Computed example of a mutant assay.
Amino acid sequence: MIITTVRCFLITLTFLGGYLIHGFSSRNGFYDAVTRLTEQRIVHDGTPYTNTFTGIAALDGTLSTLLTFFWPVVDGNNPGLSLACFLFAGQFVAVWTVTIIEGLRTGKTWRLASFTTIYGLLVQTTGAALMTPAWTALHLFATPTVSRPSIDTLSVPESSLRALPYSITLGFIAPSIAMSLPTPGLISQQNRIYAICIWQAFPLWNTVFPGKSNTTSTKNQHAQQLRLLRHCYIFALSIASTVQIATLTLSFSALLFPGLFTPITAQQLHPRNLFIPPNPFRSSKISGIPQGAFWFIQFDCWTTSIAYFIWGLALRYAGKESRGYGGSLMDVVVRPLGLGFMGAGLSFVWERDEMVFAGGNEGGKRRVKVL
């Protein structure tokens, strides 16, 4: 019953998310503004660029559009937009970590949910608000590890688990930092353009370190598997929670101590403006590309957060190991506050893994709380 309800919710959220980022962006003038600048081969602040990045016309056109979108995020002139993207990027480390792990599970080999690189590239080109609820719904439909998880079906190639933090650091985190560095002091305008384009390809990095399936199934191998899973989860949650707390601290400092900031910065960082997007069903119009990008990121982040949070809850409480355990207020309130909704979703998956591996190693069931 839980899984069926969550599946229906996520399918509905897929269509809603598509409207929130694409329908609303078309109606408020954001897409038209991006198209005009892309055709002129300039970004928001007037910096020109060549749109010949790869020599492939279709790919270069996509990169030019994404460059126009992301430039005001990292140019340092839009603190609210930059902080919103900082939060989304930090939380997305948790999303991408658990997505790759789920795709590598032995029980999902060659199923649709295992093609996480394709999912990641679609996120980059069509938006997380559209693809994330679609992928999580597909995952709940197409994998046997949801209601019948076991050590064998949840196992991941150990070489992939060892490489995962490095691939995410090199492919996602490093380019994110590089394109956010101030110009011209630490990075040139041209190198920032390159960094933004390189960052778009981060989903390809998890294919650089292919993993070999585990050939044994012993208690020692199970313990090693769980240790490696824990390292990946701790890596992702340390980043997601740090970014979550830093964002809340900055935002509520603007509310409680506005004198610390310029008036415009205090207004943009105010929790009401940072976390609450506009009504997408009204005839709102953007004042410029930064505002359009800000609204897009807000809806993208919220939809992804809700999808992964609900999906993580479903995995945590739908399996047989969780029967009779109803959760607590901490699960749905306190945990997202400290970890963020995406980080909380990962923590639920982690708890599911702990229970399954504990039951398999000890011959019985054990309730486990990782936080």
Rank of each mutant, 00 (worst) to 15 (best):
Glu102Ile: 04
Ala344Lys: 05
Leu121Ser: 10
Ser305Ile: 04
Tyr308Ile: 13
Leu269Tyr: 02
Pro175Gly: 02
Ser305Gln: 13
Thr303Ala: 10
Thr247Ser: 06
Gly343Lys: 06
Leu256Lys: 09
Cys8Trp: 09
Gly312Val: 02
Phe294Glu: 03
Phe88Ile: 05
Leu161Glu: 08
Cys232Arg: 02
Val370Met: 03
Leu181Trp: 00
Thr242His: 04
Asp300Phe: 12
Phe309Ile: 11
Asp45Gln: 02
Gly326Ser: 15
His139Phe: 14
Phe281Ser: 01
Ala113Pro: 13
His44Trp: 12
Val74Gln: 00
Ile42Cys: 10
Tyr194Gln: 09
Ser283Asn: 15
Gly364Asp: 00
Glu351Ile: 01
Gln224Val: 10
Gly340Ser: 10
Thr68Leu: 03
Phe30Asp: 12
Ser305Thr: 09
Thr99Lys: 05
Phe299Tyr: 15
Ser160His: 09
Val93Leu: 08
Thr116Asp: 14
Ala113Met: 14
Ala178Glu: 01
Val123Ala: 11
Thr247Lys: 04
Lys285Ala: 15
Gly288Lys: 00
Pro144Tyr: 13
Ala113Leu: 14
Phe70Arg: 04
Thr125Met: 13
Asp300Lys: 12
Ile234Pro: 01
Thr50Ser: 14
Leu67His: 08
Ala163Val: 02
Arg7Tyr: 07
Pro271Asp: 13
Gly359Lys: 00
Leu337His: 11
Gln221Ile: 08
Gly319Gln: 13
Leu170Tyr: 09
Pro263Thr: 12
Met330Arg: 15
Trp205Pro: 00
Thr65Cys: 06
Leu237Gly: 03
